[in-house]
Measured scan of single mutants.
Amino acid sequence: ETFPLDVLVNTAAEDLPRGVDPSRKENFLSDEDFKAVFGMTRSAFANLPLWKQQNLKKEKGLF
């Protein structure tokens, strides 16, 4: 299941849709939104070091 970017960005855990893991908001973006937000594919993002993934998520309001 995916959700629009505005539902996930800068949203407190208690305000997220049911079933969304607040530590993994990026997994609930569509592939198109994911690429638009991070400028890379999911596989490229997954290959980044964890610290870099976290920094990007913070920068984009998805942490």
Results as ranks from 00 to 15, higher is better:
E1T: 13
E1M: 15
E1W: 07
E1A: 14
E1H: 13
E1Y: 12
E1D: 12
T2L: 08
T2S: 09
T2P: 05
F3A: 04
F3K: 04
F3T: 04
F3D: 04
F3G: 04
F3W: 14
F3R: 04
F3V: 07
F3E: 04
P4R: 01
L5C: 09
L5S: 03
L5N: 04
L5D: 03
L5F: 10
L5T: 05
D6W: 13
D6L: 09
D6H: 15
D6E: 14
D6T: 09
D6P: 05
D6G: 09
V7N: 06
V7S: 09
V7C: 13
V7Y: 15
V7D: 07
V7K: 11
L8D: 03
L8R: 03
L8S: 05
L8I: 07
L8N: 05
L8P: 05
V9H: 05
V9C: 10
V9N: 07
V9R: 13
V9P: 04
V9T: 09
V9I: 14
V9D: 05
V9Q: 15
N10Y: 04
N10K: 09
N10F: 04
N10V: 07
N10L: 08
N10T: 09
N10E: 07
T11K: 12
T11E: 07
T11S: 13
T11D: 06
T11N: 08
T11I: 11
T11H: 09
A12S: 13
A12H: 10
A12M: 10
A12V: 09
A12R: 14
A13Q: 11
A13S: 11
A13R: 10
A13W: 11
E14Y: 01
E14V: 11
E14A: 12
E14S: 12
E14R: 11
E14D: 12
D15F: 10
D15L: 15
D15R: 11
D15I: 07
D15M: 10
D15G: 11
L16D: 04
L16W: 07
L16N: 04
L16K: 03
L16H: 05
L16Q: 03
P17H: 05
P17S: 04
P17T: 05
P17Q: 03
P17I: 04
P17V: 04
P17D: 04
R18A: 15
R18G: 10
R18L: 15
R18N: 13
R18S: 15
R18F: 13
G19D: 08
G19C: 11
G19S: 11
G19V: 12
V20S: 05
V20P: 04
V20N: 05
V20F: 06
V20R: 04
V20G: 04
V20D: 04
D21H: 07
D21R: 03
D21G: 03
D21V: 06
D21S: 06
D21L: 05
D21T: 05
D21A: 04
P22I: 08
P22S: 09
P22L: 04
P22Y: 02
P22R: 06
P22W: 02
P22F: 03
P22V: 07
P22A: 11
S23F: 13
S23W: 11
S23L: 15
S23V: 10
S23N: 14
S23C: 15
S23P: 05
R24D: 04
R24L: 09
R24K: 12
R24A: 10
R24T: 08
R24E: 06
R24I: 07
R24P: 03
K25V: 15
K25I: 15
K25G: 04
K25H: 05
E26M: 04
E26L: 05
E26A: 03
E26C: 06
E26G: 03
E26I: 06
N27Q: 15
N27W: 11
N27R: 11
N27K: 15
N27V: 12
N27Y: 10
N27I: 10
N27H: 12
F28K: 03
F28V: 04
F28H: 13
F28M: 06
F28G: 04
L29Q: 01
L29T: 01
L29V: 03
L29C: 05
L29S: 01
S30E: 02
S30R: 05
S30C: 06
S30T: 11
S30A: 07
S30L: 02
D31M: 04
D31Q: 05
D31A: 07
D31T: 05
D31H: 06
D31K: 04
D31G: 03
D31S: 05
D31F: 03
D31Y: 02
E32S: 09
E32K: 09
E32C: 07
E32D: 13
E32N: 09
E32V: 09
D33N: 04
D33Q: 06
D33H: 04
D33T: 07
D33L: 05
D33C: 07
D33I: 06
D33E: 09
F34E: 00
F34L: 01
F34P: 00
F34M: 01
F34R: 00
F34Y: 02
F34V: 01
K35R: 13
K35N: 14
K35H: 15
A36T: 12
A36S: 13
A36V: 12
A36Q: 15
A36G: 08
A36L: 13
V37I: 12
V37K: 02
V37T: 10
V37L: 13
V37N: 02
V37F: 06
V37C: 12
V37S: 03
F38V: 01
F38S: 00
F38Q: 00
F38L: 07
F38M: 08
G39E: 09
G39F: 03
G39Q: 09
G39D: 09
G39P: 00
G39I: 01
G39Y: 02
G39W: 01
M40L: 06
M40K: 01
M40W: 01
M40H: 01
M40T: 01
M40S: 01
M40N: 00
T41D: 13
T41K: 05
T41P: 08
T41W: 02
T41I: 07
R42S: 02
R42L: 04
R42F: 04
R42N: 02
R42E: 02
R42P: 06
S43W: 12
S43Q: 15
S43A: 14
S43P: 09
S43E: 14
S43V: 13
S43F: 12
S43T: 15
S43H: 14
S43L: 13
A44G: 06
A44S: 10
A44T: 09
A44N: 09
A44E: 15
F45H: 00
F45M: 01
F45N: 00
F45A: 00
A46R: 11
A46I: 10
A46D: 11
A46C: 11
N47V: 11
N47H: 13
N47G: 10
N47C: 15
N47F: 08
N47S: 14
N47P: 00
L48G: 00
L48V: 01
L48N: 00
L48K: 13
L48E: 02
L48A: 01
P49G: 02
P49T: 03
P49M: 01
P49E: 07
P49F: 01
L50P: 12
L50E: 11
L50I: 12
L50K: 10
L50F: 12
W51N: 09
W51H: 10
W51E: 13
W51R: 07
W51P: 07
W51G: 08
W51M: 08
K52F: 13
K52Q: 14
K52H: 12
K52P: 00
Q53R: 08
Q53K: 06
Q53F: 00
Q53C: 01
Q53T: 01
Q53P: 00
Q54T: 13
Q54Y: 12
Q54L: 13
Q54K: 11
Q54M: 13
Q54H: 10
Q54P: 00
N55H: 13
N55M: 14
N55S: 14
N55W: 12
N55C: 15
N55P: 00
L56I: 11
L56R: 01
L56E: 02
L56K: 04
L56F: 03
L56C: 04
L56Y: 04
L56P: 00
L56G: 00
L56H: 02
L56V: 03
L56M: 11
K57H: 02
K57V: 09
K57G: 01
K57T: 03
K57P: 00
K57N: 02
K57Y: 07
K57D: 01
K57A: 06
K57Q: 05
K58A: 11
K58G: 04
K58T: 08
K58I: 14
K58E: 12
K58S: 08
E59T: 08
E59V: 08
E59R: 08
E59I: 09
E59M: 09
E59A: 11
K60C: 08
K60R: 07
K60W: 03
K60L: 11
K60A: 13
K60G: 02
K60H: 12
G61E: 03
G61S: 02
G61W: 03
G61Q: 03
G61H: 05
L62C: 11
L62D: 06
L62G: 05
L62A: 04
L62Y: 10
L62P: 04
L62W: 10
F63N: 15
F63G: 15
F63L: 15
F63V: 14
F63Y: 14
F63C: 15
